[in-house]
């Protein structure tokens, strides 16, 4: 049952292949992320989910295939040819990490300000001029702090703004990492297992937060989300669209209900003797 009005696709992955030496982690994978939706990538361990993420966010250069981003402003960017920091800056694709990567020795607020580095410091020259109080830095800094405050409230960390990020409890660190990614004003947010290690109440709160990010609130525009997740409760609850990977290939693609009913998915998760004739090749 297709939706009555098909939203335009924001990200198109076409024939993506990633090889590490003789090991093929992802082989000719194609899928699309539609604007304004939450797309989940699921699959058993080693299916190549994180590799796909690393290709999209520029940490790996794909062996073959294309990744095209069509931001709402128009135009198309070929992500497979951009270095990592430019993907975050120009294409505005933000990401979080499977093993949380916060700036542990910096405060929560500083973490959110570092995320706004490129708005605060358009060029090295302006960054150096700011030493002498030039280049209108104070104004930009106030705006950045206001934005950080907004996201602190959104992830319920305002009371801990001045605490070092490394001292936060695990669940709060996960939320802070999402807030930090959102401070870069992304058009696509890539989350690598955001619910890992969260208790049921925390993953419920995470679902609410992700829906809120998708729809946009408080003057923030909505942001499409691409997530990898093992917690099927969260995936089925919030996803608009699910892509299932196994051994680096796509085995299913559709709405949560369709994917749940797909025999190939069930076989991949529960194991099926006949299906497994190819060697495990994923990283």
């Amino acid at each position: 049952m297709p939706a009555p009005l098909m939203p335009a696709s924001l990200l198109e992955v076409r024939d993506l292949t990633m090889r590490f030496g003789g090991l093929t982690a992802v082989s000719s994978l194609s899928f699309a992320v539609r604007a304004g939706e939450i797309t989940a990538v699921i699959g058993p361990n080693g299916a190549g989910k994180t590799t796909v993420f690393n290709c999209i966010t520029g940490f790996y250069r794909p062996t073959a295939g294309g990744i095209a981003l069509s931001p709402p402003g128009g135009g198309t960017l070929a992500l497979e040819r951009m270095p990592g920091h430019r993907i975050a800056r120009r294409a505005r694709v933000a990401r979080t990490f499977q093993n949380i990567r916060l700036f542990a020795g910096m405060t929560v607020l500083e973490n959110l300000l570092v995320a706004q580095h490129n708005t605060l410091m358009p060029s090295v020259a302006s960054g150096l001029l700011a030493v002498f109080g030039l280049s209108g830095h104070a104004h930009a800094e106030r705006a950045a702090i206001a934005r950080a405050r907004f996201w602190l409230d959104a992830v319920d960390l305002a009371a801990r703004a001045d605490d070092p990020a490394g001292a936060l409890p695990y669940g709060a660190q996960r939320r802070l990492e999402i807030a930090r990614a959102m401070c870069t004003s992304p058009v696509l947010l890539c989350l690598d297992e955001p619910a890992a290690g969260l208790n049921p109440r925390e993953s419920e709160e995470l679902s609410t937060l992700l829906r809120r990010i998708r729809d946009g609130a408080g003057g923030e525009p909505g942001c499409s989300i691409l997530l990898i997740e093992h917690d099927m409760g969260v995936v089925m609850r919030i996803s608009d669209h699910i892509v299932v990977l196994d051994h680096g290939r796509k085995i299913s693609d559709g709405s949560p209900a369709e994917v749940r009913a797909d025999p190939a998915v069930i076989a991949a998760y529960l194991g099926d003797g006949d299906d497994d004739d190819s060697p495990a090749t994923a990283a």
Partner: peptide, 16 residues
């Protein structure tokens, strides 16, 4: 300082 803390996270945030 962010670079000292975590270079990969810096890259993901668009810092050159």
């Amino acid at each position: 300082e962010a670079l000292r803390e975590d270079e990969i996270a810096c890259r993901a945030l668009g810092i050159n």
